[in-house]
């Protein structure tokens, strides 16, 4: 009998993700993949093997194991997980048998959590990946977010890896580091200085495509740069919309765009940004691309 998950409650934008769908930019599809890559990897190590993850948002998820049994790794942010009403550690490991319930509710921190398994999530790969692209409407479970009532099969892997014990280092609380962006030179020195000196906050509009920032000191209020030629976008790009709203583009970004981009958040800080809840204050610091690389390498 197949091992099967029955989703009894899914928060909005609960999606199936894997490492990402790479190589499709010229076809108009960005890579998607986990908003918090390190947490995705950690949940995988804890589970010991299967491909694919369920990425949950602050609304959490409830599920029942319909049949079979499986081991789950849980990681990302701080959520509260209950296995048949018994609280289990987060991050942590839980083993489910047929009929067991898993209920995950929001905890004190973070936006994204990951459920990974000792088996593969049985979704058909689309263009080489099972990652859900909320923008293109492909991948994952029928090209969409998971909904209450969905059933997801788990496919055993030949030789599941042994789960490992891991230690979690708390994220750095310093400024979010960036390298200057494609259009940085089009912004006035006053705006560039304001960007370096003033605080910003995570806005309420926040999804896999992008995170809007509140700009309480109006650093970008007067930044009107019009009619740029459309150019490549990468995850972490900070674009300034026509009304002066700074937006950090995330994993489901559009592959190209015409809004000016002042900076790109470094790869080593993107996970931390993804987990910042609306209202979190943040500041920015400029570093070189070389420094960004050494920070990324030292993370691994």
């Amino acid at each position: 009998m197949n091992t099967r998950l029955f989703i009894t409650r899914a928060g909005p934008l609960t999606t199936i993700q894997d490492a990402g769908r790479f190589g499709m930019l010229r076809h108009g599809i960005s890579a998607s993949g986990p908003m918090d890559r390190a947490a995705y990897a950690l949940a995988g190590q804890l589970a010991g093997g299967g491909s694919g993850a369920i990425e949950i948002t602050t609304a959490g998820i409830d599920l029942v194991l319909d049949a079979g049994n499986c081991r789950l790794g849980l990681a990302g942010g701080v959520f509260t997980a209950r296995h048949n009403d018994r609280v289990v550690p987060w991050p942590g490991v839980v083993t489910l048998s047929a009929g067991d319930r898993l209920s995950i509710t929001p905890g004190p921190a973070g936006n994204y959590g990951y459920l990974r398994f000792d088996a593969d999530l049985d979704c058909p790969p689309v263009l080489g990946s099972v990652a859900t692209s909320t923008r293109a409407g492909i991948g994952g479970y029928r090209g969409r977010a998971l909904l209450t009532g969905d059933r997801v099969d788990l496919r055993p892997v030949a030789e599941p890896a042994a789960p490992v014990t891991v230690t979690v280092t708390p994220p750095d609380n310093g400024p979010l580091r960036f390298v200057w962006g494609l259009h940085a030179d089009l912004f006035s020195p006053t705006i560039r200085q304001g960007f370096l000196q003033q605080p910003f906050a995570i806005g309420r509009r926040h999804d896999r495509m992008g995170i809007r920032l509140d700009d309480p000191h109006g650093v970008f209020a007067e930044a009107s740069i019009l009619s740029l030629v459309s150019d490549a976008i990468v995850p972490g790009d900070i674009q300034i919309l026509g009304d002066g709203t700074p937006t950090v583009l995330m994993r489901d970004h559009q592959p190209t765009g015409g809004y000016p981009r002042i900076a790109t958040v470094i790869s080593a800080d993107l996970d931390r940004l993804a987990q910042m809840r609306p209202g979190t204050m943040l500041s920015f610091a400029a570093i070189t691309a070389d420094h960004a690389l050494s920070l990324l390498r030292s993370q691994i």
Binding site: R26, H27, G28, S230, A232, Q254, P255, T256, G257
Partner: peptide, 9 residues
């Protein structure tokens, strides 16, 4: 001239 803005665009 270019592709990539959206799938197949």
């Amino acid at each position: 001239l270019a592709t990539g803005f959206a799938p197949g665009f």
